[in-house]
Amino acid sequence: TRVETATETAWISLVTALHLVLGLSAVLGLLLLRWQFPAHYRRLRHALW
């Protein structure tokens, strides 16, 4: 049971790290898009909202 718990903890930390990385890359990508294509971003936002 001790090994299982350790594996579970490792998986949880791995998944958390993955989610953090994905979230950060998504935010960075959005910022980059907004910085590179302001007109396109505004049009996209206008279409979405």
Rank of each mutant, 00 (worst) to 15 (best):
I12R: 07
H40K: 10
V27M: 14
S13G: 11
Q36V: 15
A10P: 04
W35E: 12
E4Y: 12
R43C: 10
L30Y: 07
R34Q: 05
Q36G: 15
T7C: 03
A6Y: 01
A47E: 06
L31P: 06
S13N: 06
W35H: 15
V27S: 09
F37Y: 15
V15T: 07
L31G: 03
A47P: 04
H19L: 05
R45D: 00
R42G: 11
R43G: 05
R34M: 07
S25M: 09
L20K: 01
R42S: 14
R45S: 04
T16F: 07
F37H: 08
A26I: 09
T5Q: 00
S13W: 15
T16A: 12
A6M: 11
H19I: 01
L18Y: 03
G29E: 03
L28K: 04
L24G: 06
W35P: 15
R43P: 09
R42K: 11
A10M: 04
L32Q: 01
T1I: 14
W11F: 10
T1D: 07
G29M: 13
T16S: 10
S25D: 05
V21P: 03
T1Q: 14
T16E: 00
T9I: 13
V15K: 03
R43L: 08
R2W: 12
W49C: 06
G29Y: 01
L48K: 00
V27E: 05
L28W: 07
W11S: 02
W35D: 03
V27L: 13
L30E: 00
A39W: 09
F37M: 09
E4H: 10
H19N: 00
L48M: 08
R43K: 10
W49E: 05
V3E: 00
L18I: 06
R42I: 07
L33C: 12
H40I: 08
L31M: 10
E8P: 09
T16H: 04
T5K: 00
A47D: 03
L24N: 00
W49R: 03
L18W: 09
V21I: 12
P38I: 09
A47R: 14
A39P: 04
Q36E: 09
R34K: 15
V21Y: 02
L22V: 13
I12Y: 08
W11C: 05
E8F: 01
T7I: 13
L18P: 05
P38N: 14
L20T: 07
T1Y: 13
L48W: 06
P38V: 08
R42C: 10
T5V: 02
T9D: 07
L28H: 04
I12D: 00
R43I: 09
A6D: 07
H19C: 00
A10Y: 04
R34I: 05
V3A: 04
A39F: 11
V15A: 01
E4C: 08
W35K: 15
L31R: 04
R43D: 10
G23V: 14
L48I: 15
A47M: 05
L30V: 12
L18V: 05
S13L: 10
F37N: 02
R2T: 14
H19D: 00
R45G: 04
L24W: 06
L48S: 00
Y41D: 03
R42L: 13
E8R: 05
Q36C: 07
R34A: 02
A26D: 03
Q36D: 02
H40Y: 09
T5P: 00
L44R: 06
Y41M: 09
L32C: 06
H40A: 12
W49S: 03
I12L: 12
A10F: 02
L32F: 04
P38A: 15
L30G: 11
L18E: 02
H46D: 12
R43A: 08
L14T: 04
L24Y: 05
T1F: 13
L14W: 01
Y41N: 05
V27Y: 09
A17W: 04
T1N: 08
A10L: 02
G23K: 05
A26P: 00
E8A: 01
L32E: 08
Q36R: 15
L48E: 07
F37K: 03
R2I: 13
L33M: 12
R34T: 08
L14G: 01
L30R: 02
L30I: 13
L44K: 05
A39H: 15
T5D: 03
G29P: 07
A26Y: 01
A17S: 08
A10E: 11
W35V: 15
A6R: 11
E4Q: 10
Y41T: 14
R34S: 09
G23N: 08
G23S: 10
L22K: 01
R45V: 08
R43T: 14
V21R: 03
R34Y: 07
Y41A: 15
L48Q: 00
L44E: 01
H46S: 08
L31N: 00
T9A: 11
H40N: 08
G29N: 02
T1M: 14
R2K: 14
H19A: 04
T7M: 13
L31I: 13
T16Y: 02
R2N: 11
V27R: 05
T7G: 08
H46L: 07
L20H: 04
S13Y: 14
L31V: 10
F37S: 07
V21Q: 00
L30A: 12
L28D: 04
Q36N: 11
R45P: 06
L18A: 04
S25Q: 08
R34E: 01
T1R: 10
L22G: 09
L44P: 02
L18N: 05
L28M: 11
R43E: 04
F37V: 05
V27H: 07
A17E: 02
L28G: 03
T9K: 13
H40T: 08
H46M: 04
V3D: 00
R45Q: 09
A17Y: 01
S25R: 02
A26G: 14
L30D: 05
L30N: 03
L14S: 01
V3T: 02
L33V: 10
L20A: 10
L28I: 06
T16L: 08
L14V: 12
A39S: 14
T9N: 10
H40W: 08
A10N: 02
V27N: 05
S25I: 06
L28C: 05
L18M: 09
A47K: 14
L33I: 09
R2D: 13
E8S: 04
L44T: 07
G23L: 14
H19R: 00
E4F: 11
L20G: 08
W49Y: 14
W49G: 06
T16N: 06
A39R: 15
A17I: 11
L22Q: 01
Q36A: 15
H46V: 08
Y41R: 05
A6G: 12
F37G: 02
V15D: 01
V3L: 12
T7Q: 13
A6E: 07
L31E: 01
L33T: 07
Q36H: 15
H19Q: 03
A17G: 07
L31W: 13
T7S: 11
W35C: 15
L31T: 13
V21G: 06
G29C: 11
E4G: 09
V15N: 03
